[in-house]
Simulated scan of single mutants.
Amino acid sequence: MRQKWSEEMPVVQFRIARPTDQLDKVVEFYMKGVGLKVIGSFNEHDGYDGVMLGLPGFAYHLEFTQHKDGSPCPAPTEDNLLVFYIPDREARDRIAGNLETMGYLPVEPENPYWGKRGITFEDPDGWRVVLQNTAGIGPN
């Protein structure tokens, strides 16, 4: 049985879902570049294809969907971020190197806080991802 977060919020799983018109490229970015694993997928479900990518434990994951008639999802502001807290700086740099090898170059964060210990990238749809090094500090 999965553990609940708290009695006030008895959630056992958390998913962020987002449409895209570039499902294959987005999945490659988060799998090959960032290192997430496929934990589920579906094809032609009411006109949608989708892939769920996650971290160990599967309690937190991302879902990307694409409709057969198109699924545009313009990126929000440059300060809407998906932040991965990575305590090992070498591991963070290795992930950044994977993304750079794939042709994704770091971008300047809108908020300078994220540039102090983090490296910001844009995924194929222009959504921003921060690889934040947390060595020696808490996650805030």
Rank of each mutant, 00 (worst) to 15 (best):
E8M: 14
R128V: 05
G35Q: 01
L53G: 11
P112G: 03
I119Y: 08
D125W: 09
K32P: 10
W127G: 07
D123M: 09
A96M: 00
G70I: 08
P112L: 05
F58Q: 12
P87K: 00
V51D: 00
R128F: 03
G115Y: 08
D79N: 15
N133G: 14
F64A: 05
L81A: 08
L82D: 03
Y60C: 09
E63R: 06
V34S: 01
F84T: 03
I119D: 06
F58C: 09
W114F: 15
T65L: 14
V34E: 00
D125K: 10
W114V: 10
H61G: 14
V130K: 03
L131Q: 07
W127T: 05
I39S: 03
C73T: 04
A17P: 06
M9S: 14
E122D: 10
R128T: 04
G126P: 11
E90F: 02
L105T: 10
R89D: 08
H45E: 10
R128W: 02
W127E: 11
V107R: 09
Y85R: 10
D21L: 05
Q66Y: 06
D93T: 05
G40C: 03
Q3N: 05
R15C: 14
E108T: 14
P112D: 07
Y60P: 01
E78A: 15
L105G: 08
C73R: 06
F84A: 04
G103N: 02
E7V: 13
N111I: 12
L23T: 02
Q22G: 00
E7W: 06
T101M: 07
N98L: 08
L53A: 13
F121H: 12
Y113I: 11
W5Y: 12
L99D: 03
E100Q: 14
D21S: 14
Y30F: 13
N111V: 11
L99M: 11
F14I: 15
A59Y: 08
K37G: 06
V51N: 00
P109H: 03
L131R: 09
E7H: 10
I86V: 14
R18N: 12
V26G: 01
I39G: 02
E90R: 04
P112I: 07
V107Y: 05
W5F: 13
D46P: 03
P74A: 08
A59M: 12
A135H: 06
F42H: 13
Y85I: 07
E44H: 02
Y30S: 03
S71H: 09
I86L: 14
Q13G: 11
P10I: 06
A96N: 02
L105M: 14
E100H: 06
G97R: 14
G33E: 03
R128M: 07
W114T: 11
L62Q: 05
L105I: 09
V34C: 01
G54A: 07
W5D: 05
E8G: 13
F42I: 12
F64E: 01
A91H: 03
C73H: 12
R92Y: 07
E110T: 10
Y113L: 13
T20C: 04
I95A: 04
G70W: 02
R18P: 02
T20P: 02
S6R: 10
V26P: 00
D69R: 07
G97E: 15
